[in-house]
Computed example of a mutant assay.
Amino acid sequence: MKVAFIVPSLQNLGPTIVVNTIIKHLCYNGVEMSVYYFDESEAMDFNCPVYKIVNNSPIDFDSFDIIHSNMYRPDKYVYHWKHRIRKAKIVTTIHQDIFRNLRYNYNCIISVCFTPLWIKYIKKFDRKIFISNTIKNLYSFENSLVIHNGIDIEYNPQLANQLYVEKIWKLKQHGYTLLGTYAAINRGKGIDQLIELARMRKDLGIVIIGNGKEKHALQLLARRYNVNEQILFLPYLHSPYNYLQHIDIYVMPSRNEGFGLAMIEAAMVGVPVICSNIPIFHEIFNENQVVFFDLENIDSLSEAVNIILSKYKYYKDSIYSYVMNHFTGEIMAKKYLNLYNSIVD
């Protein structure tokens, strides 16, 4: 079987991480794979040939059995060239609530204009794969199914930039309980709630890893609340889970999320998790594995911290066991392989 994956770029972001994880496992199952991308960026390493799509020119689609598209630009590209695809089956993975994701990453105008277009493209695919039932239930596509994300990590704190590790350790030396989070920072990630929490709780330190259009606004908010000494902003870091060794609790305070790979990673390195009570997180976890808090309710977030600290080992062990049995890369890749085989057969 030959599979072509098409992604916007090779950057270390959620959809590309998922594709990379699938490839790592399927290369041991006799699947011949290639990756095609559009935009140059800091690149992940792939266990297969990688090609740049130049000037939107068509690839040799029918030299593959499966064309697997991910995100808007690849979906648009496959839709544009669909008339030239005779043999290959085309599938796409929908990684988020399209309307809300475009709104948080861009603005309402972009969301209103581009959501109908994207849905138009998706409808032409042979299979539509959703990463959660929460997202699938928003749409009424035929030939659709759910495959939850999975992830593999190579946890090695020795690979972390020691300058940043020392900054985290220095913050911890103030006696703070450290809360950590990492993300491509936009309003949908809800990280402003952590700064509000620092204003309320002088016993907490916050480590925020990542870049994004809302980062400067968060830094200004921290200054306005006079909590700079409690908060450490770090830039985008490769394999950010390698910086969690001194973090006591991982917090995912998202207002909108496609899945939540970051908290899966945190659980895999033995850090207990607090997350917002949005539907997708309830689909992934229950109250025995994480502590939920009510969005925009800082008292609820503060109480979630107290609950974790009161039963720290229980939550740490419970979520670790659960993710290792449900959300590994191998589990996800097997489901994709079964899907590919069912389409080709």
Rank of each mutant, 00 (worst) to 15 (best):
I131E: 04
H80W: 13
I53P: 06
Y243I: 01
K82Y: 08
P15M: 07
E330G: 03
I6Y: 11
V78P: 01
P235I: 09
N226Y: 12
Y236D: 09
A222L: 07
D75F: 11
Y243N: 07
L339D: 05
L220P: 05
N228M: 14
N325H: 08
M1F: 13
R86F: 09
A43M: 14
Y37E: 04
Y139E: 05
Q11M: 09
G205C: 01
N101V: 02
T92D: 12
K52A: 04
Y340V: 09
M332E: 06
S63M: 13
P58T: 04
I109A: 14
H148P: 07
N338E: 15
E32S: 02
Y176D: 14
R223V: 06
I67V: 14
I17P: 10
I109T: 14
I110V: 15
K189Y: 11
L13K: 13
G210W: 07
T115Y: 09
Y225V: 05
T21W: 02
S9M: 04
I147H: 02
P157F: 00
N286K: 07
C275E: 01
F5Y: 15
F285T: 01
A333L: 03
D39P: 00
L179Q: 07
H68L: 06
I129Y: 02
K335S: 01
D126Q: 07
I85R: 13
I98D: 04
N55C: 10
F99E: 09
I122R: 03
N156R: 01
L204W: 11
I308R: 03
I209Y: 04
E257V: 10
E154A: 12
R223A: 11
I278R: 14
K89M: 01
Y236Q: 08
Y320T: 06
T93Q: 02
F64A: 06
N288V: 08
R223G: 02
N288K: 13
K24Q: 06
Q11D: 10
Y182L: 01
E196K: 15
K167T: 02
L244M: 03
L10F: 03
Q96K: 00
A222W: 02
E303H: 15
Y225L: 14
I307Y: 09
D62W: 08
N107A: 12
L138V: 01
H68S: 04
V35I: 06
K170Y: 01
I264A: 07
V112C: 04
Y243K: 03
P8V: 10
T328M: 09
Q230A: 10
I331F: 08
P253E: 07
N226A: 14
D152L: 00
A217Q: 14
L163T: 12
Y164F: 13
G329N: 00
K170W: 00
I206L: 08
K316T: 05
S63N: 12
V344C: 12
I284Y: 12
I208H: 13
D203G: 05
H246C: 05
N256I: 08
K136H: 01
I135M: 04
D75V: 12
S254M: 13
G210M: 07
F99Y: 15
E154P: 02
A43R: 07
V54T: 10
F141S: 10
M263H: 07
N133L: 04
I331T: 00
I6L: 14
E166Q: 07
N211R: 08
Y250F: 15
L204S: 05
P235W: 09
Y72Q: 10
F259A: 09
W118I: 08
Y121A: 03
H326D: 00
M71L: 13
I109R: 13
M252A: 15
